[in-house]
Amino acid sequence: MTLKDSVAKKEVSEEFDMFGDYTIEQKLDKRYGDEKLLMIKTGPSMYGYQRFHKEQLAVEKVIASDKTLKLGIFPFAPIHTPEKVGDYVMLKLITPLVLESQSRVVAYLTMPIEIGVVRSDTGEVNMIDVFSVGLQYYAIYGTPENGLLCRYHLTRISAEMPKAAIYQEAVVKVHFINQTRKVITINRVVFPVVGTNFYVRGAEAYYNDLDMVVSDRLSNTVAGVRFSSVKSGASTEWALSEALLKQQFKFIMEWGL
């Protein structure tokens, strides 16, 4: 299934509350999995925000605004909950990918997301709340002495666009490029995920395409991961969440592929 074919899935996502910008006239009531969000205008320039986790009050805030409040509810980098311990994501492949020498292949993975609630009327990122739907897992990439703490996610690798778990996962397309003269087995993809480079359509999320270039460096085989120059997510039916865009990054996976 290609991106355009996935329009059919839109019907499915309409059962769910959508990502996007919302203007709060009097009240906003949204549900994302077990999390229920409630924003109520309590006075001329006062709004009350509440989030309920499984019907139990989890977060409560008062927001002062002398103009009509606009909220953005978007997928966010999955690094904030339950507490921020790092900026990286490790996508562990359930089935390793074996890449022939000097070859390239395009495949789809899923990655975890968090949901951020931001004020979208202030012109700058003003985070009100961020939460995860479902459990979070963390792992070390490298060693405890000099490795990186990463949000951990198990994913299948597929040639066609997979169906991601609504509110929990985004789809990410990875261009795997093997520049070495040997067969390479890839078990994981690790990269920093700081911004909100997610495209959204209804309740679905799609991350900026990635390039993973495997090469030999001295006696070690490493992989460079960065945003791909091919932006297949930026089709007309997907909107880019612009709260905190990261332009480019490059991360070298030097502690194993």
Binding site: E83, L135, Q136, Y138, I140
Partner: peptide, 10 residues
């Protein structure tokens, strides 16, 4: 496994 801050790897 159900506690997020218990690392999966190691």
């Amino acid at each position: 496994y159900d506690i997020p801050m218990v690392l999966i790897e190691p």
